[in-house]
């Protein structure tokens, strides 16, 4: 979808009046819908729909060997799949660059020990650790991918259950793990400080959050910030525009405010969800 000049001007004027074409204010998000634990074979999963953006995240766990640099830490890896179902632009290798960008920004955002502590994923120092494989599937693109993906990832990690390891035996050079036989005897991850990403687009003279795909086309520049407990873990400027240092600082401030609001809202919802009674006969 590409816009003509008149349409772009219309959106621009709307942003100036603080009344965007879907009725929102500049710092307002579109309604979101979150479902969790919907993939049967995953250890934790979430689906987030933000207006027309639809993201499915599933977490799988494997036992791996920790790296020599960090012998007492586990691993986390992100994979993004831009399927051609999302938009025709992703056909063939079209989505590869975007997938790479999202993957790298997530990896960087989760890298700091302060934001996400990997040491709990260690089973035996230098020998065995858990590896979280976070698979992100973009089902539909309606703008603001970074925010949607980061929220869905956090929700999926919140519900991720790691099997409890009862004992670790060293037999010569072999490590033997004994995992609890009860399927609900699991450890939950602490993801309260996991980062949330917010995209701030500059349209005309103003900064807006959560741009729709039409608004993304009008933006002169965009900044993506990843915030974990009011602290920045990643900043990157996407798009081809540039910003004045003062505007940049302004948008960073806005981003950090919005992210903390979003974070509290998400955690509230997740806590409500985890209070629900599990249904089933295997308990």
């Amino acid at each position: 979808m590409s816009l003509c000049e008149a349409e772009k001007t219309f959106i621009l004027h709307g942003v100036e009046e603080n009344f965007r074409n879907d009725g929102r204010e500049r710092s307002q998000y579109r309604p979101m819908e979150l479902e969790t634990n919907i993939v049967a074979h995953a250890f934790g999963s979430a689906r987030l729909r933000l207006a027309n953006t639809d993201v499915l995240v599933a977490v799988k766990i494997e036992v791996d060997v920790p790296t020599i640099d960090q012998p007492s830490e586990g691993k986390i890896e992100f994979f993004v799949d831009c399927s051609a179902n999302a938009t025709p632009d992703f056909e063939g290798r079209g989505g590869e660059d975007l997938a790479m960008e999202i993957m790298n920004s997530l990896t960087n955002a989760y890298k700091s020990t302060k934001a996400f502590n990997l040491s709990k994923l260690c089973i035996l120092k230098g020998r065995k650790c858990w590896k979280l494989m976070v698979d992100i599937l973009l089902l539909e693109c309606g703008g603001n991918l970074y925010d949607a993906v980061s929220l869905a990832v956090k929700a999926a990690l919140w519900h991720t259950e790691i099997p409890r390891v009862l004992s670790v035996n060293l037999d010569g050079n072999n490590v033997e793990l004994e995992v609890s036989e009860k399927i609900h005897d699991c450890i939950k991850l602490d993801v309260t400080s996991a980062p949330i990403m917010v995209t701030i687009s500059k349209i005309g003279e103003h900064c807006v959050v959560d741009p729709s795909s039409a608004e993304e086309q009008c933006a002169t520049a965009a900044v993506v910030v990843a915030i974990s407990q009011n602290r920045f873990t990643t900043i990157l400027q996407t798009g081809s525009g540039s910003l004045h240092p003062n505007t940049l600082i302004e948008s960073l401030t806005l981003g950090s405010q919005i992210a903390s609001q979003l974070d509290t809202a998400l955690i509230e919802v997740l806590q409500q969800k985890s209070g629900e009674k599990p249904i089933g006969f295997l308990l």
Partner: peptide, 12 residues
């Protein structure tokens, strides 16, 4: 500013 890129954990 044509690009600002940050990693780590920093305050505003």
């Amino acid at each position: 500013v044509s690009e600002l890129y940050q990693t780590g954990n920093l305050s505003l």
